[in-house]
């Protein structure tokens, strides 16, 4: 039995929007509609889906950036050796809890304060949590820069983000994230804006660091090929719900849910001789079924720790 680092149960996040300028009627958008998953220690989960499916909302709720509407988020407490809900934390506990969770953002041009130099950017988490003496902090920054491959560190410390390339900035983001030695890092498409030749080196860096520092990732992406490279397990999200979740290779070789099939068959293959066959489905119908079928909520295990949403999709199969 694997030990879980984080467990998410029936997470819901609704947004209220008013229908019009003078209308009092409000409509609710179910951005995340009751999703559950867990991530064991040292493993990474890929959250895959198209834009607007709720994957970024999930990430923001997990990082405690936005308040969730309902549901449970349990995190492993290393002191008590138990899973504990993060709702019960008081302000002080919450602040120290935040050391455990970090996030890497998609846009390396926007995720670093343009008015700060690299040293201050990486120092900030240490300053916030008041860790170590000033000298120790500076040494830690130098050390982490070496770890993420920005050498010699002296060349990077006084520079500003706009003087670095996209790949270097993403390395700085990773350095800033990891300087707190978090256990759990949410990655929101961290390589989607990077060039192909640089992308792999960033992904490799993240994989190596995960192994060395025992970090678990929640890796959010729209690209299954990237998720395959990065993650042990993949959860496919559609319209705020997880429709299928399984071991990466199992999911790719043996997709069950029509949306997963459609997604996998949509990805271009870097081989001109390969004849890709698209598995076409009717999206409007799928959306209807998922949003109206309230009887069959839940996931069923079809073996191999492969879970599929239980709503009735026979009509589009």
């Amino acid at each position: 039995m694997k030990k879980n680092l984080i467990e998410v149960k029936n997470l819901e996040k609704y947004f209220e929007t008013s229908a019009g300028l003078f209308s009092r009627k409000k409509s609710t958008i179910k951005a995340v509609d009751g999703i559950s998953f867990e991530i064991p220690f040292g493993e990474s989960l890929g959250l895959v889906g198209q834009s607007g499916c709720g994957k970024t909302t999930t990430a923001r709720a997990l990082c405690l950036l936005d308040e969730k509407t309902s549901g449970e988020i349990n995190f492993y407490n290393s002191d008590t050796k138990n899973m504990e809900s993060i709702d019960n934390l008081n302000d002080e506990e919450l602040k120290s809890f935040r050391r455990n969770i970090q996030m890497i953002f998609q846009d390396p041009y926007e995720s670093l304060n343009p008015r700060w130099n690299i040293k201050d950017i990486i120092l900030e988490p240490l300053n916030i949590h008041n860790i170590g003496s000033l000298n120790e902090r500076e040494d830690a920054v130098v050390e982490i820069l070496k770890t993420v491959g920005l050498t010699p560190p002296e060349n990077y410390l006084p520079r500003y983000p706009h003087e670095l390339s996209g790949g270097q900035r993403q390395r700085v983001s990773i350095a800033r994230t990891l300087i707190m030695k978090p256990k759990f890092v949410v990655c929101d498409e961290p390589t989607s804006m990077l060039d192909v030749s640089i992308r792999i080196s960033i992904m490799d860096l993240m994989l190596n660091l995960a192994k060395d520092l025992e970090v678990s990732y929640l890796y959010i992406t729209h690209d299954l090929a990237v998720a395959r490279y990065m993650c042990n397990r993949i959860a496919v999200m559609f319209n705020g719900k997880i429709v299928e979740i399984a071991e990466t290779e199992e999911l790719l070789k043996n997709p069950v849910h029509p949306y997963t099939k459609r997604l996998i068959s949509s990805i271009p293959v870097p081989d001109p001789t390969y004849e890709r066959v698209v598995y076409d489905i009717d999206f409007t119908e799928l959306e209807n079924i998922i949003s109206t079928d309230t009887k069959n909520i839940g996931m069923v295990d079809i073996g191999n720790e492969h879970f599929v949403a239980t709503h009735d999709v026979k009509g589009i199969l």
Partner: peptide, 20 residues
């Protein structure tokens, strides 16, 4: 070619290109 991941075929180790 070596740095482009794919969903078909076996999972292969991808090679990165250093530098800018």
């Amino acid at each position: 070619l070596e740095s482009t991941p794919s969903v078909v075929g076996d999972k292969v180790k991808l090679n990165s290109l250093d530098g800018e």
